[in-house]
Design a protein around this nucleic acid. Structure first.
Length: 191
DNA sequence: CCCTGATTCGC
DNA sequence: GCGAATCAGG
């Protein structure tokens, strides 16, 4: 794969939007994130518009041989929020009323406050991965384990999914699928 | 361990 | 110019 105009365009666009190199690479296909980063640098747009913060940028030191070269080209651009809204994480749902079986083990209805319609596909997916779930305990939760609760916390039939989370999200892909619905999951019921 | 971007250097 | 390998930080 070569860097055609279109691919470069997409690269620029995504980079400008703050997408990570790996995401860009994935989107483009046929290239690794290294390639993307390399290209980004060659294009001279290494620094993104004053992003607040993360990035390990500006680090050219402690390296054996390296001529410090500062190449900063201010690139004006508007940054539009990608609309990544944090969703309420169920996490530690403490309060378990005296009632027994609140949640049928087979069908998790976690954080959704209001009745929420979840696409059947997503649900099916969840049920499937549920089998593969690592079924970890609260103590075993880490930043990278899916924190989707399954079962009744009041019983020992309770566990967390524990599969690898989707980066930046508290859940694995399948659970992200049901936790974050596009917005209107309603199939327009023709009326 | 997962991810990020940065840099170097052989091709 | 390209990008894998490597580095460095979170």
């Amino acid at each position: 794969m070569s860097w055609t105009d279109e691919r470069v365009e997409l690269l620029k666009k995504m980079w400008g939007e703050g997408q990570s190199a790996s995401q860009i690479a994935k989107e483009l296909g046929g290239v690794t994130r290294n390639a993307v980063i390399g290209k980004v640098h060659r294009l001279g747009l290494s620094n993104r518009a004053g992003s607040g913060g993360s990035a390990t940028t500006a680090k050219a030191d402690a390296k054996p041989k390296a001529a410090p070269k500062a190449k900063a080209e201010p690139k004006p651009q508007l940054k539009t929020e990608p609309a990544v809204k944090p969703a309420p994480a169920p996490e530690t749902k403490a309060a378990v009323p005296a009632r027994k079986q609140i949640i049928p083990a087979g069908q998790p209805l976690p954080p959704q406050p209001s009745a929420n319609e979840i696409s059947p596909e997503a649900l099916a997916k969840v049920n499937e991965i549920e089998k593969k779930a690592k079924k970890i305990s609260l103590m075993e939760l880490t930043e990278r384990t899916c924190k989707w609760p399954v079962g009744d916390p009041a019983t020992d039939n309770f566990w967390f999914c524990g599969l690898p989370v989707q980066q930046g999200k508290p859940y694995c892909e399948a659970h992200v699928g049901v936790a974050f619905q596009p917005m209107s999951s309603r199939r327009d019921r023709r009326r």
